[in-house]
């Protein structure tokens, strides 16, 4: 266990990094669409949604890069977990209100074509999976090939 745990954490760290990089990367090219995706949740005014929609992809990419290099892993994992909980709450609220929207998780989502049904439980399940990755890192933040390890002068 002593030996394998850092490897499990390393895998979790890289996987979570990939999640953020892909999620942010898919949105960053079209911030207007990202704003519309946020607006579709109908939780805030469009002006606020615009700011959230513009800031979010950059935050996601930054988090992805920080996890990729492994800097302050426990903190970045914690922030990831908070974000994921917010996203899950948003999806549940959209579901509860019977909104028919694309969660905008890995796209600039927003509107769903008529007749297409939102599969909210799938989105939630997936986010819970990501949350588990963050959980592993919160619990055991020591990983291989990380800047943290280098700075701490840790045993290889």
């Amino acid at each position: 266990m002593q030996k394998t745990m850092p490897w499990i954490s390393t895998a979790a760290r890289l996987a979570l990094a990939a999640v953020w990089l892909v999620a942010g990367g898919l949105k960053v090219g079209d911030l207007a669409a990202s704003a519309r995706a946020v607006n579709a949740y109908d939780l805030m005014s469009y002006d606020t949604a615009k700011v959230v929609g513009a800031v979010q992809p950059f935050l996601e990419i930054a988090l992805g890069l920080l996890l990729l290099i492994g800097l302050a892993t426990r903190l970045t994992a914690g922030i990831s977990a908070v974000l994921l909980v917010v996203f899950i709450a948003g999806i549940i609220s959209a579901w509860a209100r019977g909104l028919q929207i694309d969660c905008g998780c890995f796209s600039s989502g927003g509107e769903l074509a008529a007749g297409k049904n939102a599969a909210y439980w799938l989105d939630i399940l997936r986010d819970i999976g990501f949350l588990a990755l963050a959980g592993i890192l919160l619990w055991k933040p020591r990983t291989r090939f990380s800047v943290d390890g280098l700075l701490m002068g840790e045993e290889r």
Binding site: A54, F58, L59, A62, L63, I79, D148
Partner: peptide, 25 residues
Amino acid sequence: KVTLWTSVGVVMVLFLAGLVGYTVM
């Protein structure tokens, strides 16, 4: 010390990233 300073660094990076998004918008 490392934990403190890397945390400060991370918060700053995230803040800057958000600022970039806001500016682009």
